[in-house]
């Protein structure tokens, strides 16, 4: 599989990740480019015994977390050309998000703690507990327990 094919088949996944870790559309595009670059650079380190998607997602996630930590350190004045109030642009297709639940979910995930964000993102991408464990470094049992807690937390938010 070539780099372009690999990125193309995982593009949706990376975009969803960018939406969580970057606020404005411009930042999301920047992060997407950065992830693409990091994946391209890391491809030679890929070991055949690992699953390509897991490998790719781990790079994408690490790049996103690093990006977010850099954004936090960034003094506001260095970003004068951007809006002072971060605006979350998700642009989810209306046909999918009929009841606004998905839009709500994006916002709710942003309010979670970083590790919780990571876990629920991986869960929503339908990754197995083993894959989540491999990406996050948490034990498989721990992943299950934590995910249940996060799901409960989000369900409670919906009720409110």
């Amino acid at each position: 599989m070539t780099f372009e094919e690999l990125l193309s088949s995982n593009k949706g996944r990376i975009i969803r990740l960018c939406r969580i870790y970057a606020y404005s559309r411009e930042d999301q595009e920047d992060l997407f480019q950065e992830i693409a670059y990091q994946i391209w650079r890391s491809m030679e380190n890929f070991r055949a015994e690992a699953k390509m998607e897991t490998f790719l997602y781990r790079i994408a996630l690490n790049t996103s977390l690093l990006y977010k930590s850099k954004q936090k350190k960034k003094p506001p004045s260095a970003d004068l050309d951007k809006v002072s109030e971060p605006k979350f642009e998700i642009g989810i297709e209306e046909k999918i998000d009929k009841d606004g639940r998905l839009s709500w979910l994006y916002h709710a995930i942003k309010d979670l703690k970083p590790i919780e964000q990571t876990l629920i993102l991986l869960y929503l991408e339908e990754m197995s507990y083993e894959e989540i464990s491999e990406i996050t470094g948490l034990k498989v049992n721990h992943v299950g327990v934590k995910l249940n807690r996060i799901k409960k937390k989000l369900s409670n938010k919906v009720r409110k």
Binding site: G12, R13, R16, I90, I92, D97, R101
Partner: peptide, 8 residues
Amino acid sequence: QWQQSGEG
């Protein structure tokens, strides 16, 4: 729904 959201 989540997985369809980025594709469009």
